[in-house]
Design a protein around this nucleic acid. Structure first.
Lengths: 138, 138
DNA sequence: GTACAACTTGGAGCACACTCCAGGTCAAGA
DNA sequence: TCTTGACCTGGAGTGTGCTCCAAGTTGTAC
């Protein structure tokens, strides 16, 4: 018998691949965010490469501020098939815009923090300045 | 008697200025994230312009991913006076780096989402393509 | 002076996203 | 065969960050 290359991964390998914990993966499946995973004959989860990549994209959406409820909604739309295509595009476009706004806010804060760091360094060099830009939060 | 220009704001005005709710402002004070606010003779909170600007900077730190515990720590360092200057700079530098990484992650995700949107649009124009890049999460 | 709104406090409750646990099954090596 | 450990399920518990509420006080407009 030919030793077929293994084509699926255990939950442990899925956790390593995605950076999620095994508990989190089971939790996501439980709440319907991830589709019910295929199982081996003995009932253990077996993930295809494609599913693993799907999970990575999902963690991307999460790490860029999409809530589990929204991700779950997106997943459910996918399961409805191609009738939901336009709706899925609009969710992605909206999320893209949200990311754009977020990047803008981060850049602005970065600018402000840089300004503060400069002021702090001035005061560190010359403690007599007593620069108000060093105030805790201002 | 001269009608002095009002120099302090009520909690309601502070909420409007910062975008926080009144409850949240009181909560932040309660947990020590904000210093105990000055009060009027009758016990109501009265914020100076400087304090309001401090609160805005705080909400910036929060909205860019700093936890309340970290912000509180920063505030406590400030209250310790100038001996904590160097420590405060290093917190700001670290947060700046965190923001930089976050921006990188957002840009990367934006790129991926754009790629997906393009693929979706192709499928919407020509439904026979059945492009796998439209998969839910991949 | 009498409403009514805007505050005050302390403390309870809640939403989100996990995280942990008990008690059981299954697989593989010594 | 026995042990070890990876996995399973259902459900309880946790941390963070609010959010709401009750009961009381104060300020203002009529």
């Amino acid at each position: 018998m030919i030793d077929n290359a293994k084509t699926t991964s255990s939950i442990k390998q899925a956790a390593e691949f995605t950076g999620l914990t095994e508990d989190t993966i089971r939790y996501y499946e439980k709440i319907g965010l991830l589709p019910y995973a295929d199982r081996t004959a003995s009932g253990r989860r077996a993930y295809s490469k494609r599913r693993l990549e799907g999970m990575v994209f999902l963690t991307r959406l999460k790490s860029t501020g999409m809530s589990l409820e929204e991700i779950k909604h997106f997943q459910k739309l996918y399961e409805q098939g191609e009738t939901s295509l336009a709706q899925r595009v609009s969710i992605l476009v909206e999320h893209k815009n949200k990311i754009e706004n977020e990047i803008g806010r981060l850049l602005e804060t970065q600018r402000i923090i840089n300004y503060k760091i400069d002021n702090y360094n001035e005061v560190l060099v010359n403690p007599d300045i007593n620069n108000t830009a060093c105030d805790p939060i201002e």
